[in-house]
Structure formats: C-alpha cells, structure tokens
Amino acid sequence: MTMKQNVDLRVKIAGVELKNPVMPASGTFGSGLEYAQMMDLSRLGAIVTKGVSNVPWAGNDVPRVTEVAAGMLNAIGLQNPGVDVFIRRDLAFLKQIDTKVIVNVCGKSEEDYLEVVERLSDEDRVDLLEINVSCPNVKEGAIAFGQNPDSLFHITQEIKKKAKQPVIMKLTPNVTSIAQTARAAEAGGADAISLINTITGMKIDVERQRFVLANRTGGLSGPAIRPVAVRMVYEAAQAVSIPIIGMGGIGSAEDALEFILAGASAVAVGAMNFHDPLTMLHVIDGLEDYCRRHGIERISELTGAVHA
C-alpha cells in the first residue's frame, strides 16, 4: 500500500497562479452562469468568458452549428451583449466565484479591441485578458489580425500599451506556420498564448444540395482536431518561451496530458463541454490521479516533458 501523496496542480500563467491547469475554452461556457447549477465552478483553474466586444453583436444567421464526425462546426459570429452589460451582469456574477477570470476580447478594428481592453482595465475581477485574433466566423477583424504575423505583432504591441492585466493572444491554426505567429505574439509583448482556435471547415447537405451553415463556413472543433492541436502546441512551444494554454478537442485527462507534455502550461476544454458539462471536473480528477500514479509532485514538471 502506498501513502496517499499530495499532488500540486497549481500552475502560473503570466504571474497569475491558477489552482489547477483546467479551464473552459472561450465560447463554450458563457460566463459560467448557466453551468453554476450543475457544478462547483470554484473547482476550475479559471473561467474563460465568451468573447466580449465594445458594443452588442448580433452574430450570424442560423443554422449556426452542426455536428460532424467526432466534432462540430460553429459559426456563431461572436454574438455577445457588449462590454457594458458584460461588466454589469457577468463580472458581477463572477465576483462570487473563487477562481481566476480570463476575459476574452474580440473586435472588428484595432480601436474596438483597445476600447474593450481600456473598459476592463479598472475591473479588479479580471485577472487576465485573452485577445481573440483568430475567430474564423466574423467578416471583419478577428482572424485577419491573427493570420498575418506583422499585424499580430502590431496589435499585440498596441494592446500591451493599454492593458493593465496580463495579455494572452489566442492564435488561429489557419496559418502556414504556427511557430511564426507564436513568435510574432511574443515579440509584440504577449504574456502568454493560447491555441488552437477552430479550424475553418465546411459541411454540405447533399440531399438539399446546399451549405448546412448559413455562414457557409464554420470553425471545426472537438476530438477531430486534437492531433492537429497537439502538433501546433508542440511547434509553438519550440518557438517561444512564454506560457502556452493548449486546447483542441480535449475530453479527458489523457487528452489534456498530451497538450501538457507537448508544451502547454494549462489546458482548455471546449466543444466537449457540450458532450458532458462535467468534462473539466473529470479532467482535473484524472490529472491528479495520473500524477499520483507516476510519482509526480507538481503538474508543472510535465510541461514540455516530451521533446525531440
């Protein structure tokens, strides 16, 4: 019989300590309100909010979601109530929850992003900012900033000038070299990066001979994208020294460990929250169990443990 060993699941992202490395991916958890009756939100390492913009956004037409093999496509189009209501309603709710808060920020122009960043700068409930420069489903802004290393470098720099909280740049997989965009974010002053956002995809209804999604294209997420995401986290980890939050189809502790071993300091669960709202709690328990079985005292020891 072995002694029950304590496992330290704490990780640090840009100087902010999380009680464990598990959080929801932006857009799959609202601000946690809807899931509060199903789980103890304070068990999460952090809550990452749905993207928030300077004014309310109506998003795309329906159909906005559809299932594909081991995954889903979405083209919500970043519908959100705008930063004023977000602060009044969502941040007020999050004040009651004992966990870190990462607010995801979206915009159509540089000014949009900066306005939200400034509005949030005095909100002490915001621990970190995650900048969405990678959404494939809005026509202006978003992904355009994230696909070109020069624009990514520039907008990161501008946001860093205004932001009072540490800045995570969320990267798109829809690029030729993730190492190049990761380096651009780091050079622009990003405190951390998160990846991957969804992979642009398309589904066609063959009976009706038309696009399934009103937006025609959508972002692919779920287990189908996991190997791509693990590979990209690995490549980014080889390219930069800032912390990485890894995501893409995580549904179990084993999945999360792939990302951590590839170089992620923390992980996010996205589409699999829709399969089972308690997925994150299972991942946290499974990480603790894994560390025990492998005699690992601190989960942070595992970050990047697999390399060439």
């Binding site: 329906v62 559809t66 519908q79």
Partner: peptide, 25 residues
C-alpha cells in the same frame, strides 16, 4: 440546431421582435 442545450453556445437563436434582455440584440 443546438450544441449545448443550456444557453451557453448561442447556436440555436431565433430572431425576436424586441431587444432580448439576455443578448441585448
């Protein structure tokens, strides 16, 4: 078409005649 069923993913919206309290649109 729905993904989450509980109001977080915003996949299943309909168009309303008045501004909706939750969405502000």
């Amino acid at each position: 078409r729905m993904a989450c069923g509980v109001g977080v993913c915003l996949g299943c919206v309909c168009t309303t005649t008045h501004k909706d309290e939750h969405s502000q649109v």
